[in-house]
């Protein structure tokens, strides 16, 4: 008798837990959602996260809290999210390109394509070829000609080796058969300052970095097939007919593996609505970026194809 009570109690307990999990997914979200940004506050990805947090009001019933966990090229934050409880209350927003590259170049167990659930893409950061305002280079072709005339004489600045700006720049050099010495700076701001001061002949930096600095810098081309959605005045490598490596950085929201499918789907829908809000676009416009929405599956496909493009470049980098 006693034994039977115990079993039934245990069964009841299991049943309770089961219903709790089921209703749990339906109830989501009940608590604030922590959105981990694996970079310092103030960067491009952080700007997206804060805009999401501000624009989520009215769409999600709970606040979205931005948590910055910088370090190790974005792997620090990723590490903390990959092991987080998959309950839909901890997610990560990261710069997909940089994240992908750091998982390829660093010693880590994280796989950008397999370790997380892709929720959605909400934005895109693109790198571009810029020169100081008083530079003799008026076009991309000028840069290529100068590099060919005297190989290795040019210096180019970027925001750190292994980042997507660096790999994008390497792709441009490799595809055009030219050589130049790179000078890494720490982050986009110092790179921009160095370029304004003509410390390098050209640089690869985020096209949004031009916003507000049109009098100091000249952007020759953005590293993509088509022009950027916001910085529309800058021509694209694609339209100029200049070969490049399609490395950009989609801003993607990831959830820990094992997050209930309903929760991922609900967040995906919420992000789609947030990205469509004019408020969201306004918040980003001042930083020179804008909304670029893709659902989770498409975002994963984009990142996979980028991995193929970047693989040979990364190979040359690690050797």
């Amino acid at each position: 008798m006693k034994r039977r009570t115990l079993i039934s109690a245990a069964l009841a307990g299991i049943a309770l837990v089961a219903t709790a999990t089921a209703s749990f997914a339906a109830d989501w979200p009940k608590r604030p959602i922590n959105l981990v940004v694996p970079y310092k506050a103030g960067g491009g990805t952080d700007a997206y996260a804060r805009a999401i947090s501000a624009a989520a009001e009215g769409i999600l019933d709970v606040p979205v809290v931005v948590v910055n966990k910088p370090g190790s090229g974005g792997l620090n934050g990723a590490n903390s999210v990959v092991g987080a409880r998959p309950d839909g209350y901890t997610m990560m927003m990261t710069s997909g390109g940089s994240f992908l590259l750091s998982t390829m170049t660093r010693d880590t167990d994280i796989d950008a394509l397999d370790s997380f659930e892709f929720v959605a893409q909400v934005g895109k950061l693109q790198t571009s070829l810029m020169v100081p305002k008083d530079s003799p280079f008026q076009s991309v072709q000028d840069v290529i000609d100068a590099a060919k005339a005297d190989p290795g004489s040019l210096r180019w600045a970027h925001s750190g080796r292994g980042g997507f700006h660096h790999v994008g720049g390497l792709g441009f050099l490799a595809n055009n058969g030219i050589e130049a010495q790179d000078v890494p700076f720490k982050g986009g701001g110092p790179t921009r300052a160095a370029l304004i001061g003509s410390q390098a002949d050209f640089g690869f930096l985020g096209v949004q970095q031009l916003a507000g600095f049109e009098d100091q810098l000249r952007a020759l081309a953005v590293n993509s097939q088509e022009r950027d959605g916001i910085m529309k005045d800058v021509p694209a490598f694609g339209e100029l007919g200049i070969p490049f490596a399609a490395v950009s950085s989609p801003v993607i929201v990831f959830a820990p593996k094992g997050t209930p499918a309903e929760v991922v789907a609900a967040m995906e829908t919420a992000l789609e609505q947030i990205a469509a809000k004019p408020e969201f676009a306004e918040l980003l416009a001042s930083r020179g970026t804008g909304p670029v929405y893709q659902n989770g599956a498409d975002a994963k496909a984009t990142l996979s194809s980028m991995k193929e493009d970047a693989a040979p470049l990364v190979e040359s980098l690690t050797n």
Binding site: K40, A41, G42, G43, D46, A47, G189, P190, A193, G212
Partner: peptide, 15 residues
Amino acid sequence: FLIHGIQVGPTLFLT
């Protein structure tokens, strides 16, 4: 400055 997204350096007086 960095936490609040302000880049210290020569461009600070422009931004």
